[in-house]
């Protein structure tokens, strides 16, 4: 067996998986709290990548150093994505909170189409080259044959963000409020938790994580366009379902499992059906184990 190839695929999968996990967290948190599949979440990720591209381009013209550009672009992308996430919720989901369950889903699909075309009209429908902003430091030389600096950066950043999120949910007051709202929104409201605030915060966190994912992957892959959100969104959703939707550790685990599945399948079998694999996996999980790996099966209440 060719171990070098194996490890390449392993870390390739880990990189992909970390990105999926970052986006999946947004799906799973929103689902946990308002039981809605935020179909436009992939678009928020795309907006993050695009915003970072524009900021990076502008700063590049003014001659900033690469590391500074990366940090500023990522920060701006996070702020804007959080703002987009909150606005999205206010316009498309909040008025529909008591509507039948199909309504917010259709509205989410509409929002997703709207945002894609907003980017096409405001910028372009072409693929845009994304500058490679990650320097290759010397201490990473020994592992350079398996993974590049941007892959290391993706894995480390994702791990740190996820750890921070876990701590936030577990130990802060707001985190507690979020868990309470996820368990039972009505009861949480009766206990004096401002549910609107919690929901907004959920969108802020989910969208920021998506922005981080967007900037990292854009810098790694080297190009962005308006359509990258759709496929990434579906795959991240698959990851969220795989781990058990509504469960935060589940989303992380699901992302990694999906990343490895894809990486090994394309590496050892064939790359023709790379995207179909995620869909097939999604269909299979939903049919055989809809509650996912870490999710709890829910009984239907009448």
């Amino acid at each position: 067996m060719d171990w070098q190839y194996f490890w390449e695929l392993f870390f390739g999968g880990l990189t992909r998986g970390s990105i999926y996990a970052l986006i999946a967290l947004g799906y799973t948190m929103v689902y946990g709290i308002i039981e809605l599949i935020n179909f436009a979440h992939g678009e928020v990720y795309m907006l993050g990548a695009f915003t970072a591209l524009i900021v990076a381009g502008a700063l590049g013209i003014y001659g900033f150093p690469a590391v500074a550009i990366l940090i500023i672009a990522a920060a701006v992308a996070v702020i804007y994505c959080a703002a987009y996430g909150v606005t999205l919720e206010k316009i498309a989901y909040k008025p529909l909170r008591d509507a039948p369950r199909l309504s917010p889903l259709i509205s989410a699909i509409g929002m997703s189409i709207f945002l894609q075309n907003y980017v096409i009209l405001a910028q372009t429908s072409d693929f845009m080259p994304f500058p490679n902003l990650v320097p290759q430091p010397e201490f990473l030389e020994p592992i350079a044959h398996i993974m590049g600096a941007s892959e290391v950066l993706i894995i480390v950043t994702s791990a740190v963000s996820m750890a921070a999120l876990t701590l936030f949910i577990k130990y802060t007051r707001m985190g507690k409020a979020m868990r309470a709202t996820a368990q039972n929104r009505k009861m949480a409201m009766l206990l004096g938790i401002d549910a609107d605030k919690v929901i907004s915060l959920t969108f802020v966190i989910g969208s920021s994580l998506a922005a981080v994912g967007g900037v990292l992957i854009a810098s790694h892959v080297g190009q962005v366009n308006f359509a990258i959100g759709f496929i990434a969104g579906i795959k991240a959703f698959t990851a969220a379902v795989l781990g058990g939707i509504g469960s935060i550790p589940g989303a992380m685990l699901g992302g990694l499992v999906l990343g490895w599945c894809e990486s090994f399948a394309t590496g050892y079998i064939s790359s023709d059906y790379e995207d179909a694999l995620a869909f097939a996996l999604l269909v299979l999980i939903l049919i055989f184990r809809p509650s996912g790996i870490l999710g709890k099966a829910k009984t239907q209440k009448v």
């Binding site: 599949i37 579906i234 179909a276 269909v283 809809p290």
Partner: peptide, 28 residues
């Protein structure tokens, strides 16, 4: 048949996946 037990959003996503699989098969 397989989606009989699913409803609402899950059904929506599975059917979306199904549609994309058909398209990808036709493409590949």
């Amino acid at each position: 048949f397989p989606v009989l037990r699913l409803r609402g959003d899950y059904l929506a996503i599975v059917t979306l996946g199904f549609g994309e699989i058909i398209r990808l098969v036709l493409e590949n």
